[in-house]
């Protein structure tokens, strides 16, 4: 490869890098600094005092240098998100970023999301080439639903804190925001005749759950509950007592007439809260919403599945295939 070609390639690569969008904003002290600079400049022009020109030159070169050094700081930075499976709306959650510097060092970086749906930022005091750093932002998602995170804003106040320069990196990710946790009303009726476990059993200790103990069989009791081995060893008829399981199956549904927005969000929040309460009570919970159904089941994994489904309610058309519950 000739030198010219190499230089041209470098120039293209460099110009691509410089073309990335940047924004520059004066901080509070920066604004005061600018006012003072203008004042001193006017004083220098008015009086012709060379020392004022010297001070003015110093102040202006600080401004120029702030632009150059801040560009150096945010130029060779790569960031990727380390997202949780899902987060609750309105609650703080740890949003982690892995920051990698591809060349040199960077100081005083502030990482945040470009979208307004997530607020919170992470601070990177120092990152050097080849040593990835994971930092955490205490972020909050305001509303339920899938949030498409397409940009990360990398800002810096370096070197003097007079200006905040921001570079926007395009990094695509999808964050599932579960419905807000909150108040729940009374549970609805259980699915008709679809209870599971021993709810039909009248006695509390004649269930099919965990072992409670052995006792002598009373007359008229079910002989199927006799523990034959123990009975043979003791010479008496001993009955096994097991805890009765009260599990029921509930299939919750979302009002199909609720419109996308606050009404549907409230509906989903109530359903999510109810789901949590029922699952915590040991029931099995399913979900039916807008032509989609999840069969009743139990366990933390199932709860997350339901929450994710609730997060997608109303946004199903946007869901990528892999992200659909």
């Amino acid at each position: 490869m000739s030198v010219v070609t190499t230089l041209r390639e470098r120039w293209r690569s460099r110009s691509r890098r410089w073309r990335a969008p940047r924004t520059l904003k004066a901080t509070r002290v920066g604004r005061t600094y600018l006012v003072l600079t203008v004042g001193i400049g006017l004083g220098a022009l008015n009086t012709g005092n060379n020392l004022l020109y010297l001070v003015l030159g110093f102040l202006l070169s600080i401004i120029v240098l702030s632009g150059v050094l801040s560009e150096w700081a945010i130029r060779d930075v790569r960031v990727r998100r380390l997202l949780p499976e899902g987060v609750y709306a309105g609650e703080r959650f740890p949003l982690r970023y892995e920051v990698t510097r591809t060349d040199g060092r960077a100081f005083a970086l502030k990482l945040g999301e470009g979208t307004g749906a997530i607020d919170g930022w992470a601070w990177v005091p120092y990152v050097t080439e080849g040593q990835p750093l994971v930092v955490r932002a205490d972020a909050t998602a305001s509303r339920r639903g899938p949030v498409r995170l397409s940009t990360i804003e990398v800002s810096t106040y370096f070197p003097f804190g007079l200006f905040e320069k921001t570079r926007t990196l395009e990094v695509d990710d999808l964050l599932i925001v579960w419905p807000r946790r909150g108040f729940t009303c009374d549970p609805p009726a259980a699915d008709g005749g679809r209870h599971v476990g021993d709810l039909g059993t009248s006695r509390q200790r004649d269930g099919g759950g965990d072992l409670l103990g052995l006792r002598e069989l009373d007359p008229g009791e079910d002989a199927r509950r006799i523990h034959w081995a123990k009975s043979a060893s003791t010479g008496r008829l001993l009955k096994v007592e097991r805890e009765r399981e009260d599990r029921q199956q509930y299939t919750l549904s979302i009002d199909p007439t609720a419109t996308l927005g606050d009404e549907l969000d409230r509906e989903c929040e109530e359903t999510a809260a109810l789901t949590h309460r029922l699952l915590a009570d040991g029931h099995e919970v399913g979900l039916r919403s807008r032509g989609r159904a999840i069969r009743p089941s139990a366990g933390p994994g199932h709860e997350r599945r339901l929450l994710t489904a609730l997060a997608w309610v109303g946004y199903d058309d946007d869901a990528p295939e892999r992200a659909r519950p």
Partner: peptide, 27 residues
């Protein structure tokens, strides 16, 4: 490095900025 460059830049600016003076209230 930043301070050094700022000082050098200040000197360059001092040398090159046109010396125009209104002289309204010079002292």
């Amino acid at each position: 490095l930043g301070v050094g460059l700022a000082l050098a830049g200040g000197v360059a600016f001092f040398v090159l900025f046109p010396r125009l003076s209104w002289n309204l209230a010079s002292r």
